[in-house]
């Protein structure tokens, strides 16, 4: 946390998270309305944006300020993929680039797959 450890510092921290996360989503919403891009395309767009930011080294300083505001949207997923890929490539050689992203994000993806599997057994979709 870069803000002072006081009550208003905490509050400001959350305000920044709310505003940055909200702005990213509002930007995606503008894209949807204006360009009729499908959600899948927009997700990929923001994902790649996260990867590029991480590659250029601007994601880390941004996320130090915006924290969950940029990490919870799909940009954060892209950034962790890139972070893992870059770190593993630098430590284990170029082949590591293909493994590092998946290793870094394995928690989230693994749990999402397992939880989806369980949910599909327990619940049934409803007609609306």
């Amino acid at each position: 946390m870069i803000l002072p450890d006081t009550w208003w510092g905490w509050l400001l921290d959350y305000v920044i998270v709310f505003a940055s996360g909200g702005l990213l989503c509002a930007l995606a919403q503008i894209l949807i309305i204006r360009t009729r891009l499908t959600p899948a395309r927009i997700l990929v767009l923001f994902l790649i944006a996260g990867i590029i930011m991480q590659t250029l080294g601007i994601y880390e300083p941004l996320s130090a300020v915006l924290r969950s505001g940029i990490a919870v949207p799909i940009t954060g997923f892209g950034a962790s993929l890139a972070k893992g890929a870059i770190e593993t490539a630098l430590s284990d050689g170029p082949l590591g680039a293909f493994a590092g992203g998946l290793i870094q994000t394995a928690y989230g993806v693994g749990i999402a797959v397992a939880a989806s599997y369980v949910v599909s057994v327990v619940f049934k979709p409803k007609s609306k």
Binding site: A40, R41, L43, V44, L47, I48, I51, I52, Q54, T55, I74, F77, G78, L81, A82, G84, A85, I86, T88, A89, L90, G93, P94, G96, A97, F98, G100, G101, L102, T105, V109, V113, S116, Y117, S120
Partner: peptide, 29 residues
């Protein structure tokens, strides 16, 4: 059903994420 189609909507995110992050890793290397 479940196992085959689970990635039918999020597939593009995972695939693009792996491909582009690998490219990022190679580039930085």
């Amino acid at each position: 059903g479940t196992a085959v189609k689970m990635f039918s909507v999020v597939g593009p995110v995972v695939v693009n994420g792996v491909v582009w992050s690998a490219a990022a890793g190679v580039l930085r290397y």
